[in-house]
Design a protein around this nucleic acid. Structure first.
Length: 298
RNA sequence: GGUCGAGUAGCUCAGUCGGCAGAGCAUACGCCUGAAAAGCGUAGGGUCACCGGAUCGACGCCGGUCUCGACCA
């Protein structure tokens, strides 16, 4: 299993590994590569790569549809079961930390209660997040202690589950700060900040040269457009702003670079807490430097 | 050459009557259970362009110097 921030080269490493080991199938753990037609901006594996090695986790939804963790876990775990049934080898390539944890760790994803949620969101708008947080403290002190009183989105969700299910939100798993042993190897790609920043900037410009603007514009022309979740994709929302005349193209591209860098740092911070990940420092060539470690882990 | 304006955190800029130097963004660090490429928080960071003066006390007032911009010649 390979983890790492955007632009770290994990897809290349995965491809090289899979080609060297017949029977390996790649499972992309990425919240944005699940959308059909969002190819350039999500650095989705090419059709060549996908015909050479079986990929899972890609193209699971239309950009006009909302997509979330639970759906991903359903599809991805079915894919992994299939690979095991075929006696193949599953290689996970993960950029989205939550999706990975939901897939590999004991965590029961609670359901949805839209009516409850609706009410909570209205109350949050009127009364503020702090009031709801106080309520959560009364109903589920453990869950409340895990989130900032100002984090409306998380508090609303915790209350939605607690009120909707009749069970405390925190009863649905040990919590994200628990790292139980896991029966496979996790290798992390580790770059220095400046080196990764450089790679990201180059990558964004490569995406522009590869026609990202046309891709975004074509998606906008679809009747369904981009759903709330798909709209969050880096590179897409900024170029949409530009297409709507809210900023110049250069400004939009600069923003994409900046936000992608910030996102990469957030990924690092998420993954580095996980003591189960074995980090491989990379100087120049991810494939050459990581592949031996991966093969050594067998 | 003259007039006016500007110079304050890495960047863009607030700063009232002279009384402990501020914001947004950036950066660093942390949090996260159905939006996660999302969301939330904490922290560090200053020769207030420079030199001098008056004042108990100056980013602020006075004199001068430098730099940038606009306008006039």
């Amino acid at each position: 299993m390979v983890v790492g921030p955007t632009g770290s080269g994990k897809s290349d490493v995965a491809m090289a590994y899979a080609l060297a080991r017949p029977g390996t199938e790649i499972v992309a753990v990425d919240a944005m590569q699940v959308y059909r037609g969002m190819d350039v901006g999500t650095a989705k594996p090419s059709t060549d790569d996908r015909s050479a090695v079986v990929h899972h986790g890609l193209d699971l939804a239309d950009p006009g549809d909302e997509f979330a963790v639970a759906e991903f876990v359903r599809v991805a775990s079915a894919a992994i079961d299939g690979i095991e049934a075929r006696h193949g080898r599953a290689l996970l390539v993960a950029g989205t930390g939550l999706y990975l944890r939901a897939l590999t760790d004991p965590m029961e994803l609670p359901g949805r209660w839209p009516d409850v949620r609706e009410q909570l969101e209205q109350r949050a708008a009127r009364e503020g997040a702090a009031v709801l947080h106080a309520e959560l403290v009364a109903l589920d002190p453990l869950a409340a202690s895990r989130m900032e009183p100002s984090n409306e989105r998380r508090i609303v969700r915790a209350l939605e589950v607690t009120l909707g299910s009749g069970r405390p939100f925190s009863s649905f798993g040990p919590g994200l700060d628990q790292y139980p042993p896991v029966p496979f190897v996790q290798v992390g790609l580790q770059w220095s900040r400046p080196a990764l920043a450089q790679r990201i900037e180059a990558r964004v410009h490569r995406m522009m040269a590869a026609g990202l603007l046309a891709e975004v514009s074509a998606l906008l022309d679809q009747p369904a457009g981009l759903s709330r979740t798909a709209m969050q994709a880096l590179g897409y929302k900024e170029l949409i702003d530009h297409l709507r005349g809210e900023c110049s193209l250069d400004e939009a591209v600069d923003t994409v670079v900046l936000r992608t860098r910030q996102y990469a740092v957030r990924q690092e911070r998420w993954f580095r807490r996980d003591p189960r990940i074995r980090w491989v420092p990379i100087e120049h060539d991810p494939v050459a430097e990581v592949l031996p470690v991966l093969q050594d882990c067998e």
